[in-house]
Design a protein around this nucleic acid. Structure first.
Ligand SMILES: [Zn+2]
Ligand SMILES: [Zn+2]
Ligand SMILES: [Zn+2]
Ligand SMILES: [Zn+2]
Lengths: 169, 169
DNA sequence: TTATTAATTGTTATAGTATAACATTTATGA
DNA sequence: TCATAAATGTTATACTATAACAATTAATAA
């Protein structure tokens, strides 16, 4: 089963309330296939499967957690198997790296052209991470940087705290 | 010798031009001593030395690089020696962790009361990292978060790119 | 001072994250 | 089909971080 119907505290509930996560997964895989095809990049079986595993839920997942599952399906799976797939997915902008956790999360809105860097709200209780569209913060950071003569190439913005659901208790 | 006089490309040059880094070190150690004393926290020899090593320059330094030096001075030095010192220094807000590098850097302006989280510009060429005072970005991030009902407890903001000096070439 | 307790450091082992290097297989296009 | 490039297999190892328990040192009370 892809998704349990029973909603526990550790399941993800978006700002618009509970959701059918199967849609998230299908959506992400469809977008990935389209983007890769358009770019002439090969979304191989391994890469696709790794992306799917990353999209198991909305919590960042570590490389070795992915490997654990992958091993059950491919006797050959080893660390490089996963890290190579991750490198590909990162380069294609299909997943983001969560630096504060050495973990990876799917990008819900991969850029057709560039690979953007995301801004994340990460709940310390349920573990879910939400990616924000934060052009304002990006621009402000860019300005602060240019005041120092610094030219930004990529950024990591990760906020840890409590999501709506987890504040209740 | 603490600091070479010859300024190479890999030396740090602040926005106000080249500087005497010995002042940075003395300053940092003095502030640390004052803060710890004020808090009743013990800045032991090891902790002080680790802080000093972190302040060797303005580049984030890894725990095992610190260990390498420390070992020459204390036969006993082992990973926990360094990580415990780092834990202390982090808790006292005297150093920051650079998540994107699994490395540590001294805080030039430790908060007397709280331990703040820094905003960093990190040069991909020379490796130097500058900490910004970015209340505006923090506030903007806070607003974006609260729009989602999210309450931030800590943040990681790290921008990678080229500093003024390193753009020239 | 001395005994008691708490904090720090020593020591060994191991967990967790990531990449190097080279061999083999699979896909692609001439 | 053959040559080439891309992807995957395979083994080993480097790098980062913590667990667990012992020994030592510092702080505090008796
Ligand atoms: Zn979902
Ligand atoms: Zn939560
Ligand atoms: Zn300096
Ligand atoms: Zn630079």
């Amino acid at each position: 089963m892809i998704h349990s119907k029973k909603t526990t505290k550790r399941d993800w509930v978006g700002s618009a309330g509970s959701h059918d996560h199967r849609v998230c997964i299908v959506d992400a895989l469809d977008k990935a296939a389209a983007l890769c095809s358009q770019r002439g990049a090969r979304l191989t079986q391994i890469r696709r499967r790794v992306l799917e595993l990353i999209w198991s839920n909305h919590r960042p997942i570590g490389a070795y957690s992915i490997l654990e599952v992958l091993k059950k399906e491919r006797t050959n799976a080893a660390p490089p198997t996963v890290y190579r797939a991750l490198d590909f997915l990162l380069k294609q902008g299909l997943v983001h790296r969560i630096q504060s956790q050495n973990a990876f999360i799917g990008c819900p809105n991969p850029d057709p052209n560039l690979q953007h860097t995301g801004t994340f709200l990460i709940c310390t209780d349920c573990g879910n991470a939400v990616e924000l569209e934060e052009t304002k913060i990006d621009r402000l950071l860019e300005i602060s940087a240019s005041n120092q003569g610094f030219v930004i190439e990529s950024r990591t913005i990760e906020a840890a705290g409590l999501c709506t659901d987890c504040q209740v208790n």
